[in-house]
Design a protein around this nucleic acid. Structure first.
Lengths: 197, 197
DNA sequence: GGGCGAACTGCACTCTGTGCAAACTTGCAT
DNA sequence: ATGCAAGTTTGCACAGAGTGCAGTTCGCCC
């Protein structure tokens, strides 16, 4: 995994570009920031920007393939016999533990709320995460994802619960630890709604 | 709802534009079709195209607000005490019953598979449908969607199951009736995966 | 039939996104 | 060290995307 100078520089440029994109959009608004601005802030040419991202939105809300690979590795390293829901809970909770990660994640959510034009690309990112997790779970549980739809369904439901729980947390006083929020959200997975009163 | 000539023409133009977009993209590929081509095929100016859609992709995989309203109305008209999963099953199965609708839906799926650049906008459409259904279910069940995450989770899980089931059906010999596929997919909603063997 | 508001259109302009070829940097073997 | 191969950056040219504006057309309603 990249002890070379070349790979390190590439990661740095990627990080600088997405960081500059998020910061500039936060400060000036999505359509008052051009690709030219972002490239200038990261000190590369516009052409180089498009070597890393296919558009402005992807620089703001995209996800690096390396993160997806890490998630999949974490899932595959969980012990035999663990319940899938516990695997997800632990993997997702430990992924977002660093202070910088949490702040970056919060900023991204704020930007998606403020600028709905980011939503399509943001959902594509979410979808990539779901696919990666579903594939890893299927492999860990020795299921064929081409035939058995349950990993896909399970991950979609779990991440939907997670999204709902985290959205609630953002609007609350934010005193509850994030790990607890994840626990509560995943424990509320239901197969049906209660009858009307 | 719009017996007037003005409203009818608007719907016709919308339909002509999205139809032309789908057909042209199917035939020539996503990036060999320009907005100019689509507008010409629907016999309007390019400027008018952008009065209806914000970009090429939205013309291909977008959803009209009227369809979302119809879905919500259908949900609200279901009888008291029906299980939410049955409500979804019936509403979704009857929505797609017409021959033209099924073909349009299949063509859209084929295009998303062939042209991944359509995926972000397609997921945004799916998300709109989920939001509409979740809001309608919450209203029908007298739940507050701002507080109670269950409708959102339930709909997300159900539509994920549905997507998985329909993807399987598309790759099968397509002899099973679509209604049955929907039944099977929704009945496979699970709260966890089986332990590994 | 006449006015009002909504929709359509052309035009000008900026920004997006890509192909290409030349320059430059890194990795590696000699 | 040196030189070659592979990967990366950059400028340039160009087609297409998307928007604001002003003028025109057309359905709607009195």
């Amino acid at each position: 995994m990249s002890t070379g100078l070349r790979a390190r520089k590439k990661r740095e440029t990627h990080h600088a570009l997405s960081g500059a994109a998020m910061e500039l959009v936060r400060e000036h608004g999505l359509d008052h920031v051009t690709v030219h601005d972002i490239a200038a802030a990261a000190d590369v040419s516009v052409r180089t920007f498009f070597n890393y991202f296919s558009c402005k939105e992807e620089a703001v809300v995209g996800v690096d393939q390396g993160v997806l690979d890490d998630l999949a590795d974490d899932v595959c390293r969980r012990p035999e016999g663990e319940r899938a829901i516990d695997t997800l809970r632990i993997v997702l909770a430990t992924e977002d533990d660093s202070e910088a990660m949490v702040r970056r994640w919060q900023l991204r959510n704020e930007l998606v709320r403020r600028f709905p034009a980011l939503l399509p690309r943001h959902l594509a990112t979410t979808n990539q995460v779901e696919e990666a997790l579903a594939a890893a779970l299927a492999a860990r549980w020795s299921l064929d994802p081409a035939v058995d739809p349950r990993p896909r369904i399970f991950v979609a439901a779990a991440l939907a619960a997670l999204r709902a729980g985290l959205a609630w947390w953002e609007e609350s006083d934010r005193t509850m630890p994030l790990g607890a929020v994840i626990d509560v959200a995943l424990s509320q997975l239901v197969t049906d709604l209660p009858r009307s009163p």
